[in-house]
């Protein structure tokens, strides 16, 4: 935990830059007012923060930034009252941040393994920090594969990173969109069918999967059928959260609280929780 207390009371941050990603999705770069040089709190890949939009409320949002070398930022799709209010802000405006909270991705435990990322649509947001981390530390891992799916080419997240990843040596990047459209000469079809078509490693492999429930279930089915164990499939869960510190109980699933025990779980854990994804 950082020395700045922000468990209950948010600390104030300034939006330094806003980037349009895809329709309804924007990235907000932040500088922290009370910290030297506006420097961000230390984060772990896979964690989340609680973001206050003044006058509208607070919401939980995963951190896409690479802990080692990225500027601190949030990528947010507008879905409700608060996220809409955030989208109405511009550079220079203030917001509040609590956190980071949550467990983060288990990089130590997966050293030496092959890594497969499967992301559907904005499911790439919480996986981005992990991808960036793995890219920086390529030598620690075996084969690295990226499967990204979106409904249309316009809905592909982080286009500026995609080019970088496609070009990165040792990265096998596959991108698909749901249906053929003019000006798209890449793969088409759902992402889980794409996995089947490619020769993916199964032994000593860990898969990170994130995306809408339908896509998630289809991908899990495919991966487990191919022989990847449920304990080697990792995802990050999204739940309705209010406090972030394990008290409000909104994110309780069975015996676990997504905010403090998660949000990163293996599929084996998720399965025993007994709720829909």
């Amino acid at each position: 935990m950082s020395e700045i207390q922000n468990l209950t009371i948010p600390e104030i941050a300034t939006i330094t830059e806003i980037k349009d990603e895809i329709v309804d999705v924007r990235t907000f770069y932040l500088s922290f007012d009370a910290r030297t040089g506006g420097e961000a709190p230390k984060i772990k890949s896979g964690q989340f923060v609680m973001c206050t939009v003044f006058g509208a409320g607070e919401f939980a949002v995963s951190l896409p930034a690479c802990p080692e070398n990225d500027r601190f930022h949030l990528t947010v799709r507008r879905v409700g009252k608060v996220t809409n209010a955030l989208h109405a802000l511009s550079a220079g405006d203030k917001i509040g941040i609590r956190g980071p909270f949550g467990n983060g991705f288990p990089f130590e435990e997966i050293k030496g393994k092959n890594i497969i990322y499967v992301a559907g649509g904005i499911g790439l947001i919480p996986l981005r920090s992990s991808i960036m981390h793995v890219m920086r530390n390529k030598d620690e891992f075996g084969r690295i594969l990226l499967f990204l799916g979106a409904r249309t080419p316009q809905e592909l997240m982080y286009q500026y990173n995609l080019e970088e990843w496609k070009a990165a040596p040792g990265f096998e990047t596959y991108i698909t969109i749901d249906n053929p459209v003019p000006d798209w000469d890449g793969e088409t079809g759902f992402v889980h069918t794409l996995i089947k078509k490619k020769n993916i490693p199964v032994k000593d492999t860990v898969a990170f999967v994130c995306g809408p429930p339908m896509m998630f279930n289809a991908v899990i089915k495919e991966l487990t059928e191919m022989g990847i164990g449920e304990e080697n499939i990792i995802s990050t869960l999204e739940r309705h959260m209010k406090c972030g510190i394990g008290k409000c109980q909104h994110c309780a699933i069975g015996r676990t609280l997504v905010c403090t025990d998660g949000p990163v779980y293996t599929y084996r854990q998720i399965k025993t929780l007994g709720e829909q994804i």
Partner: peptide, 25 residues
């Protein structure tokens, strides 16, 4: 039982309160 909800009702154009209220699963 200790579940709660959090809301930020506005108290004026440029001010709001953060309220904790009881909630129920």
């Amino acid at each position: 039982c200790s579940c709660f909800n959090i809301v930020d009702p506005q108290t004026s154009e440029e001010a709001a309160d953060r309220m904790r209220t009881w909630d129920s699963c």
